[in-house]
């Protein structure tokens, strides 16, 4: 299987751009709040690099950065995205993650896993009074998957062979 790497500007700019758009777009277009662009970036980089350590570091860094823009304690998104980064890179080693169908399923699955981890930590450790809503989570996962398939196709052009 192919292992890809990314140039330093791409590695730095795309996560920052995703976090910036995540903070900016929902104010103008409220339907964007259903998407989690930083999560899609974590999954993409983790699956392309196929390195579990790189995946979890990417996930932790992006998650903590996302946490720092909220008023919640640092680490909620950090832990959830660390696990997702590790999981996505592990899956990337075993599956052909270039096909559209696989990408769709992988994004859907990891989006739900991400929300479950976030909910568990937020509820269990931070005592946030969250309400789990399956319909909303599925809707969000599907929206992310559809958007992610197109985004990944665009971002494939940024890959360099290792």
């Amino acid at each position: 299987m192919e292992v890809y790497r990314f140039s330093l500007p791409v590695t730095l700019i795309f996560p920052l751009l995703a976090i910036f758009l995540q903070a900016f777009l929902p104010l103008r277009f409220s339907f964007f709040s259903i998407l989690d662009l930083p999560l899609l970036i974590v999954i993409f980089f983790a699956m392309a690099r196929r390195s579990q350590v790189a995946g979890l570091i990417t996930g932790a860094a992006i998650g903590l950065l996302q946490d720092s823009l909220t008023h919640q304690p640092l680490g909620l998104y950090g832990i959830a995205k660390t696990v997702v980064g590790y999981g996505a890179s592990s899956l990337g080693v075993k599956l052909d993650v270039e096909s559209v169908g696989t990408r769709f399923l992988v994004i859907t699955g990891f989006d739900i896993i991400h929300e479950i981890i976030y909910f568990t930590i937020a509820h269990g450790m931070v005592r946030l009074n969250l309400h789990w809503n399956w319909a909303h989570e599925l809707e969000s996962a599907l929206a992310n998957a559809i958007f992610g398939v197109f985004l990944f196709a665009l971002m494939d052009r940024l890959k360099d062979r290792a």
Partner: peptide, 23 residues
């Protein structure tokens, strides 16, 4: 177990940080 150890360490550190902030 290198990769799993990294994962455990990353999660442990963040949970520790969270606990300090909550406290």
């Amino acid at each position: 177990y290198r990769n799993v150890s990294f994962l455990a360490a990353a999660i442990f550190l963040q949970i520790l940080g969270l606990a300090v902030q909550v406290k």
